[in-house]
Each structure stands twice: as C-alpha cells, then as structure tokens.
Design a protein around this nucleic acid. Structure first.
Length: 982
RNA sequence: GCAUGGAUAGCUCAGCGGUAGAGCGGCUCGUUUACACCGAGUUGGUCGGGGGUUCGAAUCCCUCUCCGUGCACCA
C-alpha cells in the first residue's frame, strides 16, 4: 500500500481507499437535490479564468512536462456560434483538457479571422439596410473600412463569448485577430518574401470573377452546380461557300458579340476543309463581323455539332484558343454582369441573364436559330455570393505555391497523420494538380497588397538606364539588368536616397516597355509601416487590392506565436500537436498552412490533423440558414447545459462520418449529468459510517467486479481518445457509469449499505469513492463543469496537492488502470468478473420470470443452488431481485407447475401459491425449449460434418463442443421441466 | 469521367472470417428511502441486390443498384 500511495502519478486513486474518508467527510459540502447547471457553469468558468487555469507558460515546458498545443480554426470575427463550431471546439477542448490531466503544458491559442468578403458583405448590407449608404462609394475606402472596424469592435466579441459558454479552455491572454498589427506585418512580410523569391507575380489572366462581390476569386471559392439550362443551336453561313451552313451549339448566346472566331477540329473530316474560311457573326446586328474559322485540337468533334464559337473574353478555354491563334479579345460585359456597348445596341445595358433571353430572340428573329433544347450542365458558382461566376480577363496577383513536394511527402510518409487517414489521399490528389493561386481581391476589407508603384521617365537609358529622377530612388546593385531581351528585371537595393526611404527592407522592381524604353514603372514592396509612409510621400501609389483572406490565415500556426521573432512560444509550442477542423477547408486552409509552415518554419505546423464530420439534420440535410434547420447552440445550452450539449454532440459524432444532429442526444446528455449528480448524492447519503483501514479481504465479488469494469473503462476511454474516437469514448463512459456502476454496482452495494456490518459498509463506501474519483476525472474532458462541481462538492480535491487536483479537477491526473501488482494486492482475479456476472445473470432471469407472470411486488424466490453460496451473495441477489424472501434450498421440491428458470447458479423458482397458471408456464418453457433445440441442432449439425471437424482450428472445434454440451444440458433440464408440467 | 466514403433492428450507429450487437424509439409493468431527466421487462434484422472464395462470409473478392463527398468537365 505504501508504494502505491507514494506513486505521484497515481493521484487520488488509492488514497481514496478508506484511510482518508474520515478526512473527506467533514468537508464535503451537501449537494443540492437538483443540479443547476446555469449557475454552476457560470461560476466555474469565472473561477478558471481568475485562476489563470488556461494560461500557457512556455517556461514550464520540460522533458517531464511536454508541451501540447492547438491553434483554433479562427472563426469569422463577425460570426455567431453554430453547431459546427460546437463540434469542433468541443473536440479541441477535450483534447486540451485531457492533455492537462496528463501533466502537459497546454496552449490552446484562440482568435478570429477577418474573413474579407463575408465581413465586408455583412457590413455593407447592413449599412444599406440602415439607409446609411446606397453604395460603398458613398463612404469611400477609408470610410467603409472604418465602419467595418467599428462593426468588428462591436460584434467581434460575440463568438468568443459563446465559446466561453461552451467551456472552451482557450488561453484568452493570447487571443489573436488576423488583422492585428503584428499579424498584418507577417502577411506583408510573407508577400514581399515570396515576391523576392519569384513565387508571386502579377499578370493579366483569366480569373473567376464574382459579379456580385465584384472581385476575383480563387478556384477553391468556385463550386460547380448542376443547372437546368437551354442549349441554343444557331447556324452561320460560310462566306466563301454560300449555301454551306455551320450549326453551332451554345448555352450563352448573350456573349456572341464577343466571338472572334469559329473553331473546328482539324481532324474532323466534316469541317477540316473550311479552316481558313470565314463566317459572319450574327450579333450584334449592327456589327456582323467576319470571323475566321480556325482549326484547334481542343474542339471535341463528338460533342454537340463539333463546331465551337470562340469567345476569348468570357471563357477560359476560348481564351487559350485565342492565344494560340492570335485572335482579338472582345470583352462585352462590365464587371457587374451587365453587358456593355460592345454587345451592341440591343444587348448593351442588359443584365446577363436577361440578355441571354434577348439574344435568343434576336437569333430567332433573323432566322439563325435552329433549335432550343433543355440542357443540363455544370455552372461555376461563387461560393460566398451564390451567383454564377464569370470568367474574366483581369490583372491580378498570383502565387506559385511553395514547398509542394516536401509537404506531400510528409503526409505520404506519415510524419503527419490525418484522421481519418483517407483525407491524406484527397490532400495528395489536390497537391498533385495545383494551379497558381489568385491572391488578390478587389475589396477594401483585408490586408492591402504591400506594393507601391510610380512611373518614371528615363532620359539616359544607355548609360545604365536611369535618369536623375530615377536614380534618386534607385541606386546601385543592378545585378540583373536585362541583357537577354526580357522586359522585366528585379533588383534589390542595400541603400537608397532619398533618405526617408530606409530601404533595407524595401524591395524594388522595374518594368518597362520593351519598345520605347522611356517609361519605367518602379514597384516597391515593403512590410514596414514607416517605409510605406515614405513611399506614399515620394509619390508612390499603393495597389488598391487586398489579399485573399486565406493568404493571411495560412500563417496562423506561427504568426499567432510571434513569428518572425524567435519567441518562447514558438520554441515551446511550435509545431502544434493537433489541428481539428472540417474537411471542407482542407484545401483552403489545411494544405496551405502545411506549405507555409514548411516554407517559413522549415517544419510541419502540426503533427495530427483531425477532420470532423459535417453536421446535418435528421433528414441528412446540411445545416443552413435558409432551411432554418440549424438549432442555436446557445438556446440548447440554456435548456440543457453546456455539458449536455457537449456530451450529446460527441455521442453522435463517429470518426470520419457526418453527424446526424438530433436534439434527443442533447437531452440524453442532460439526463446523464443528472444521473451523475444523483449518484454522487447517493454516496453522500452514506456519510457517516467510516472505517480507517481498507481490508482487501472484505472486497465483495461486486466490489471486484466494478473495479475490473472500471479498469476496462479506463483502458477503453484512454485508447479511444488516443485514436480520436470521441463517440466511442463517450459510449464507454455512458455504458460504464450508467449500465454498470449505477444499474448493478450501486444496487448491489445496497446489500451492504442497508445492512449492519459497519466494516463492510466502510469498505463499500471506499470502493464507491475510488470509482467516483476515477469516473469524475474520466468524464472531465467531456463534462468539464459538472465534474468540477462534484469534484469539490464531494471533497475529492481536499486531499490533493494544489496543482494536481487540489484546486481544480482539470489538473488532476488522468486515471490509470490498476496494473497486475495492484490487482494482486487487492486480491482481484480476472475470474472475479464471472462470479458477479453469474449472479447478475441469475437476477436477470429471475426478473424475467417475474415479468412473465406479471408480478411487480416483492415475492418469494427459491434458489436450488449448484454450488454453495455465501450469505452475502444471497443477500445481494435478494435485493437485486427484490425478493422477499429468497430461500436457498438445495433440497427444494417444487410443486407441479411452479415457474422456474435455469441460472448459472442453479434452478431458480418462483413459487406462486394457489395462482399457478400451469398452461402459461408450459407455454413459456416450451418456447424456451424450442429455442434451445434450434441452437443445439445447429451446433450438432456442424460437429457432425466431417468437412467442418477436419478443417477447423482446434480452438474453434473446442468452442463448438463446449457449446454443444451447454445447450444439451439446458435442453435436458428444460425437457424435465416441461414433462413435470404435464 | 476519375477518385473516395457509405448502405446492418423504426432511427443513429458498432461489429469487418467463427453463436447478429448497443443506444434511442415502440410496447408492458412499476410512487422499492440517489435519480420518473427514473427503474424493470420486452419487441425489432434472409446485415442493399446478384455472383464467387471458404468447412464457415455482415465481415474477403467481383459485379450491379442507390445515397453522399472531392476533383475534373464540352460549347
């Protein structure tokens, strides 16, 4: 016992056995009859904050106290808590709380994301609703950004407060926002750095354009949606061959005015001979230009008519064809989706979908339309604005992804693990097909592109290309002046004049027109505010675009920890241990964080990535505002408690699958908390009678059974958590506490507690304390509030060192199962589980008998035992059976027709004097016999089969033989019983 | 089209080569001094269809159907 007590990792475990009970009892505060979660949850959260319980301290990290860290997936700063957040953050909280109990130094770093498009949209919409503005231009850039900051200050805290309600144990002293000054600095620094490395470039490209948000989007922000549309077939005549008509199929007749060619496949025998000839473009009517017929391999001649109209300004593929054939580009649409004057007088000024209808009418009117048919195709939608996107040629900033190879290998090699691991495949697949990332957005809310430009006229190019004006800004170190005919170069300057440009950190670049070489555009990039100001003063203009939100959040794991300085936090907590997030942002965020982590920290940002499922309603539909099927977590907390919500959602969240949310599970969580509360109250009511010594010899079979079941539960929960199987952990807890501890052990313990043997009583109470002390700790990560309340209410804290559970259960040691030595000390053998199980099985059968005969009152049972039973065991069975009395009589001779069942402990009779329904009993026994008969027949048939007995492993054969003898014994006894009934 | 996950009791799911399981629900009892947010009992399934491998298949293989997801995408 001594060595057990002195084990520091053991914690309360064995000290809870007897010796300390007399100490515990006086300081136990009485638990109220009902649990009041709202008050308790508020009180404990405030206490934890006051105690700084969530604050991480990197200086405490050591070999003995390893770091555990998680960065929160930053929610939208103006967002409100959804069930998705509840799921995600409950998991993170469980991981963090368990890590604390394992003695780790835990950092859960919280914060919010500025969420460019979403936030700007919300605020703009709101201002319009209030009538404050009609258009963002009414306020201008500065004004609107100011309004958004105001909004952020007012609403930015909401989701944080909601996370606190949930019990999230984040280190709020480290809360970050992606537009904090230091964070913004990181974003700029990374931009400048990648630019210098040649991985960021500016270019005029076809991009995804959102006509609603009026900005470019990355490929990831576009989702394809199947669409019921119309395929229009129209015909054009080949000018050089009058009478030869080509039929063209299109879904977008409104952009015909933007057509600059007709393309056919040169291998298509139907049309190859027409290449080089011309057709007349039908629209606009006043400008029916001649279009060349070009041959291009891209055209699939098995699709449609095999003739493709080429609209370079409005289609990616067409743009490429245009480039291959040097075709002009005619952009017929304004950024907002309204056709411009180039679309002609009929269509110009019309909204794109109205224009489509009108264009079809025009084609019909001029007799060009051949047919219109219903057609289903996929159309790209802007994920945010939920409108079809346009492909649009525009000047944007692009990033060639860094560090693709290493990060891919890392996942493949298993240096970083994905849970469930199938996401690694998805990740790899995406990494394999990377396109450059369009990172600029035409918005105002976000990190402005840290590039300034100024156009300078060059006077004396020949002598090194710069005039006085230019050299004033750009001096030495021209290391790459273009000798190779390229019209672009980069140069970095170690010093410049004017002196206000402290340019050690400013990076310059020249672009000029390769023909005239008279105009030079000087681009300056800096991540330093002073230099930015100097550039503005020197007449430079900053790029109006902002960066994609994900271009800032991909730095989250290290930019939040003080990068680029080598901070104590980075040293202690980077890379982070776990990342918990939804699979929907695997590309947006996870993959990019991996790349950024590699590029800037030379290391992975996290060791494990857990992907949650997506929360759906009972019908399997995604939660959405428009469907109104998304319950408000705060309301659920108000009705059921945060613990209940956490428990409910974890119970229904199996690894790797979507979650069908059902409020029933939250109700179940609430009920579970109540059960826990009442079970603790039951312990308290045993108050007084306490012995100071535990006597292993006094442990009953029930005690041993529950201790073994506890061991199993500890093992199961521990393994489940290690493997991120949260719902499995939850079901184990549920089963152990409710079905094993409450339903069997507590009931069985009443045999002692209601008896007169004080020594046994004390021992039983000690076992109860042992089990409850462990149970509360096992539950704590899931149910932080009620476990803390009970930990103190039951006085479990009183006996612990302050930093190991004395002050809070969250630092109490995580339960360890008893090892072999400990079990030996208490005389617990594995077979003890069977002893109790046999007893419970006997009780089950007896209860079944009672129920068959519709008896709910106390009633006499007689057991005809096969082995001798100690008095205590008999008393337990009596209590569990609610028998009054339970006679044990080896020589019992039952009257004919007395109901009886065969139990592991012997035959159990329910003597019903005078009211025996022989017929009913005969039916029951006959039914039982029939069942046994079928089972017996099955086993016999197998054993009779040579094929089976000769090929099966010995173990299986033995099992079957054993089964056969069991069934036959039962069969024989039942037969006798049936015969006795006549 | 290419990947990928799933289909087991009314519902949500576990089991993944050797007697089909759990929770919830349903039904029937029950005011036993922790708990009716409770207790006891009980009812539910040719494990999506079809083939195959095996002594033996919900479990392994093939194939089909249906749902979900990702990527690509043709007018």
């Amino acid at each position: 016992m001594e060595n057990l007590e002195s084990d520091p990792e053991r914690g309360v475990a064995f000290r809870q056995f007897a010796p300390t009970l007399c100490v515990l009892f006086p300081i136990m505060s009485e638990l109220s009859k009902t649990y009041t979660p709202a008050e308790v949850e508020e009180r404990w959260y405030a206490q934890w904050i006051a105690d700084g319980a969530f604050t991480a301290d990197p200086s405490r990290v050591s070999d003995k106290r390893p770091a555990y860290s998680v960065v929160i997936p930053p929610p939208n700063v103006t967002g409100i808590l959804t069930l998705g957040h509840v799921l995600n953050n409950t998991i993170q909280d469980i991981l963090c709380r368990r890590a604390r109990m394992l003695g780790k130094e835990v950092l859960w770093l919280p914060g919010t994301d500025h969420a460019g498009i979403a936030t700007q949209n919300v605020v703009e919409k709101n201002l319009k609703k209030q009538g404050a503005i009609k258009h963002r231009d009414d306020l201008g850039r500065e004004g609107l950004v100011e309004k958004i900051w105001e909004w952020k200050e007012k609403h930015g805290g909401i989701i944080i407060q909601q996370l606190k309600k949930l019990g999230a144990s984040c280190d709020w002293s480290r809360e970050r926002f992606t537009m904090d000054p230091e964070y913004s600095r990181c974003v700029q620094r990374v931009f400048v750095d990648l630019y210098k490395k040649g991985q960021i470039y500016r270019g005029k490209r076809m991009v995804n354009w959102c006509p609603s948000s009026l900005t470019a989007l990355s490929d990831e922000e576009v989702t394809m949606k199947p669409q019921n549309g119309t395929m229009y077939h129209f015909k054009v005549e080949v000018i050089e061959e009058p009478g030869t008509w080509l039929e063209i199929a299109t879904t977008r007749p409104e952009v015909i005015p933007g057509d600059t060619a007709i393309a056919v496949n040169p291998k298509d025998p139907r049309y190859a001979h027409l290449i080089g000839k011309h057709v007349r473009r039908p629209l606009p009517l006043e400008n029916q230009a001649e279009l060349p017929i070009v041959g291009d391999e891209h055209v699939d001649f098995t699709f449609g008519t095999g003739v493709l109209k080429v609209t370079p300004a409005h289609d990616k593929a067409d743009f490429e064809i245009a480039q291959r054939h040097s075709l002009p580009v005619i952009d017929v649409m304004n950024p907002n989706g309204i056709l411009n004057e180039l679309a002609g007088k009929d269509l110009g000024g019309m909204e794109r979908f109205a224009a489509r209808k009108r264009a079809a009418e025009l084609l019909t009117e001029i007799g060009s339309m051949v047919k219109e048919e219903l057609y289903q195709n996929n159309v790209g939608y802007s994920e945010r604005a939920d409108v079809p996107i346009e492909h649009r040629l525009s000047e944007q900033w692009f990033l060639k992804y860094p560090s693709v190879q290493p990060s891919q290998e890392v996942v493949a090699k298993g240096d970083m693990r994905f849970f469930p691991d199938r996401w690694a495949k998805v990740y790899d697949h995406w990494m394999g097909g990377l396109q450059d990332w369009c990172i600029s957005r035409q918005l105002w809310w976000g990190h402005r592109v840290p590039v300034w430009t100024k156009t300078i006229t060059i006077l004396r190019f020949a002598e090194l290309g710069l005039n006085e004006d230019a050299t004033a800004h750009l001096t030495n170190d021209f290391n790459d002046w273009p000798k190779d005919g390229r019209n672009t170069t980069s140069l970095s300057l170690s010093a410049t004049t004017p002196s206000e440009l402290q340019t050690k950190k400013t990076f310059f670049r020249l672009d000029w027109d390769g023909e005239s070489r008279e105009q030079v555009i000087v681009s300056a990039l800096t991540d330093c505010a002073d230099e930015a100001a100097a550039l503005n003063q020197a007449g430079f203009t900053q790029d109006p675009d902002v960066l994609d939100t994900w271009f800032s959040s991909w730095l989250w794991p290290f930019a939040t920890m003080g990068w680029p300085n080598e901070t104590a936090d980075l040293k202690a907590f980077y890379p982070t241990t776990d990342l918990v997030t939804g699979p929907d942002i695997i590309f947006f965020w996870v993959a990019r964080m991996i790349m950024a982590g590699y590029e800037y920290m030379g290391e992975l940002p996290f060791k494990n990535v857990y992907f949650t499922g997506i929360i759906r309603d009972k019908q399997g539909r995604k939660m959405s505002k428009s469907l109104g099927n998304s319950p408000d977590p705060l309301e659920l907390i108000a009705s059921y408690s945060a613990d209940a919500l956490r428990f409910g959602i974890m119970r229904s969240a199996p690894l790797g699958q979507d979650i069908a949310f059902d409020e029933k599970n939250v109700e179940l969580g609430r009920n579970f908390c109540t059960k826990l509360w009442n079970a603790c109250r039951f312990r308290q009511m045993q108050g007084g009678e306490v012995e100071s010594e535990v006597n292993p010899a006094l442990l009953s079979s029930d005690d041993k059974w529950i201790l073994l079941r506890l061991n199993t539960a500890i093992n199961e929960v521990t393994t489940a958590l290690e493997e991120y199987r949260f719902s499995d952990a939850t079901s184990t807890l549920y089963r152990f506490f409710w079905s094993e501890y409450c339903d069997w052990y507590v009931e069985a313990s009443k045999a002692v507690l209601q008896g007169t043997d004080d020594k046994r009583k004390a021992n039983t109470v000690a076992v109860i304390d042992f089990v409850l002390g462990h149970t509360l700790r096992l539950f704590h990560p899931f149910l932080p509030f009620i476990t803390e309340e009970l930990w103190h209410g039951m006085g479990f804290n009183a006996d612990m060192p302050e930093n190991q559970g004395g002050k809070s259960i969250m630092f109490a040691p995580w339960p360890k199962p008893m090892d072999a030595d400990e079990q030996a000390y208490f005389g617990i053998l594995p077979e003890d589980e069977k002893t109790a199980n046999d007893k419970y099985e006997t009780v089950n059968l007896g209860r079944g008998l009672k129920s068959t005969f519709n008896i709910s009152k106390k009633v006499r049972f007689v057991l005809k035992p096969t082995t001798e039973l100690p008095a205590h065991e008999i008393e337990v069975i009596r209590i569990l059976l609610n028998a009054e009395p339970l006679d044990v009589d080896a020589a019992f001779a039952a009257k004919k027709g007395t109901p009886a069942v065969l139990t592991p402990l012997g035959e159990l009779f329910l003597p019903l004097d005078g009211i025996i329904d022989v017929e009913a009993e005969r039916t029951r026994v006959a039914k039982e016999l029939a069942k046994v008969d079928t089972e017996l027949a099955k086993v016999k048939a197998k054993l009779a089969d040579e094929n089976f007995t000769s090929k099966v492993p010995q173990k299986v054969l033995d099992e079957h033989k054993h089964r056969e003898s069991d069934w036959s014994a039962q069969f024989e006894k039942l037969k006798v019983m049936l015969e006795a009934l006549g």
